[in-house]
Design a protein around this nucleic acid. Structure first.
Lengths: 135, 135
DNA sequence: GTCGTTGCAAAGCGTTTGCAGCCTA
DNA sequence: TAGGCTGCAAACGCTTTGCAACGAC
């Protein structure tokens, strides 16, 4: 039987509020503001059980610790900004994924991670270029 | 200045021979057979410097330690078998990747990981079903 | 001989686990 | 009150680092 606890509530609330995948440490920092004395182990334990009940999913990133997001009902992928390291949701999916598959292989899932520059960082960059030009 | 060493040679040879991405521990086990007394730290150090010189690349997998492969000249993706955990190269790429991108975002790289059952495991499964049927 | 490289062991770092006490139902 | 959940600290597994010795050039 699963009990409602302040800690678990806070963790869920933090994830919901963020609206983007968070690292365990980020969740810990934010949730600790609501529940003082919170332990990092509790964050991991809650994430694990939330994952088992399908309420959250982990997003694995190259060379980084996984981040966690509330499980949406929609299939989606992610975009990682190479500049600010922020992770975005992409609500689209290539049509021709299955065509990549060698013969005899069966496809069950697929992960796609796009990387580049997000709109916020792209704007900053072009602003800086404008600033630099007069020199 | 970079020196040639038995350890470094063995590591490169192991990667070349494997022809698929290997985990550091796998590389260590195989290279140790050629160079006894080899330390795991040396494997990590070599992989790191090989990566810096662009000779090898790391393949990041969800929830697993990265695996390493010799850097090919061809852009490719990977297929991870959910049954035998073996990682395959996919020499194809979706055409419409750029269409996924939100406006204002710029794409620099993309990773795709397909998962399912490889041809070897799919065959084993169908054999077992045949075996089971007579019962 | 120089100094890049190595093996070993210790240290790091993120994550998990053991345990006694707490708190929800 | 029962037993799931918690905080703490220790343990973990993988990776990195410090250091003295080794060996390629």
């Amino acid at each position: 039987m699963i009990r409602t606890t302040h800690q678990g509530d806070a963790i869920r609330r933090v994830l919901k509020k963020a609206g983007r995948p968070l690292a365990p440490q980020e969740i810990f920092d934010a949730a600790q503001r609501e529940v003082s004395g919170l332990g990092i182990a509790t964050v991991y334990r809650n994430l694990k059980s939330l994952q088992q009940e399908g309420a959250v999913t982990s997003v694995e990133l190259p060379g980084q610790a996984p981040r966690w997001e509330l499980a949406g009902d929609r299939h989606h992928h992610h975009f990682l900004c190479n500049t600010c390291d922020k992770l975005y949701e992409i609500n689209a999916c290539p049509e021709d994924i299955k065509n990549l598959l060698p013969k005899g292989f069966t496809l069950e899932e697929h992960d796609i991670l796009l990387r580049g520059q997000c709109i916020a960082c792209a704007r900053k960059d072009s602003l800086q270029e404008v600033k630099k030009q007069p020199k």
